[in-house]
């Protein structure tokens, strides 16, 4: 991991949403959706952002590709500060990044054919001038996501395709501008189990072949294993644990990560005979989260300090950070 391979760095990134109560009220509250996230992603690597709904993972994903402007911290992309880019610079950043969303059925304008949907990014960035070249690019992108023969798909409307096929088109659209970074926000959570693996496998192949940086946002720990090098566990706007995916799965340190692993269902007929040990309760409201560790109210191992102070990120093992007082000494 030399400096040349560095693709994306987040430094203490914050995204707070303002909430005004009433029309004239000057009192402003904030939803602290992303509250101090730091990590680094190298070229051609995939990182899983794992968390439940309300953990801030989606907000983080959208902030990274600058659909939201951060309130604090920095985003460094290819050694360039993109935190507050504007206008043409932002347009450049849009070309360098791609997005795959959760809902494939909503991801396309229903009045555009697949061809037009894929052509749009090319038209906007004007990277290829002639119509023929654009068509060639569109067809190539469809081939890339294995929607062949391309002519069968290019002139269809979105409603004529299945969820899995649409998600492939979404991937094709995300890579058509040859970006360096792809954010895939729960790309398979609305698809059938058998199709999920198909899409994830496709994403993985593209990532390796095109040396893409991929940020894979998911609530499902089980799918992170074969599809990402790094994993980052988020809870209530904070990063609770980050390490190599294999390391996290094999040796989870944070009580929250452990709870997630326990709760993830796995096909096993023995399951029905036992109850799962999972923490009760629900994630805190992000308007007024606990000042200390945000998981402390649900944590089975919480002690005094956990309710008083917010823990920093401890490097419990080499390359394995955990935001938990249990690992203070190491």
């Amino acid at each position: 991991m030399n400096s040349e391979g560095r693709l994306l760095e987040l430094e203490d990134l914050r995204k707070w949403f303002e909430i005004r109560r009433g029309f004239l009220s000057s009192k402003v509250n904030y939803v602290k959706a992303v509250d101090g996230v730091t990590f680094r992603l190298d070229e051609g690597m995939a990182m899983s952002l794992v968390g439940e709904s309300g953990s801030g993972k989606t907000t983080l994903g959208k902030t990274i590709i600058r659909l939201y402007e951060p309130n604090g911290g920095r985003i460094i992309f290819q050694d360039r500060d993109v935190t507050h880019l504007k206008a043409n610079d932002l347009k450049w950043y849009r070309r360098m990044t791609g997005l795959v969303q959760q809902d494939p059925f909503g991801a396309f304008a229903s009045h555009f054919t697949i061809f037009r949907s894929l052509e749009e990014p090319l038209l906007i960035h004007n990277t290829v001038k002639s119509k023929e070249e654009r068509a060639e690019k569109v067809f190539k992108a469809l081939e890339e996501v294995r929607l062949t023969p391309v002519e069968d798909f290019a002139y269809k409307y979105p409603h004529m395709l299945s969820g899995g096929q649409l998600q492939r088109v979404a991937i094709a659209r995300a890579i058509i501008l040859e970006p360096r970074l792809l954010v895939a926000d729960e790309p398979v959570s609305m698809l059938d189990a058998s199709v999920r693996i198909e899409i994830l496998t496709l994403l993985r192949r593209l990532q390796e072949r095109l040396r893409l940086g991929v940020i894979y946002i998911t609530h499902d720990l089980a799918t992170t294993r074969f599809f990402s090098e790094w994993a980052l566990i988020m809870y209530a706007g904070h990063v609770m644990e980050k390490a190599f995916t294999q390391e996290i799965l094999r040796n989870p340190l944070h009580p929250y990560t452990r709870a997630l692993l326990t709760a993830t269902p796995e096909p096993n007929p023995e399951n029905r005979n036992r109850f799962k040990q999972v923490p009760p309760g629900e994630p805190p409201a992000l308007i007024d989260p606990p000042k200390s560790c945000r998981f402390s109210p649900r944590c089975p191992h919480a002690f005094d300090k956990c309710f008083k102070e917010e823990p920093p990120e401890f490097e419990a093992a080499s390359g394995h950070w955990v935001k938990c007082w249990l690992y203070e000494r190491s």
Binding site: I197, T201, L249
Partner: peptide, 14 residues
């Protein structure tokens, strides 16, 4: 196609 955490089996798809 069901991914597992407890085994090293790589999930496949139909």
């Amino acid at each position: 196609s069901a991914p597992t955490l407890s085994t090293d089996r790589r999930p496949e798809f139909i």
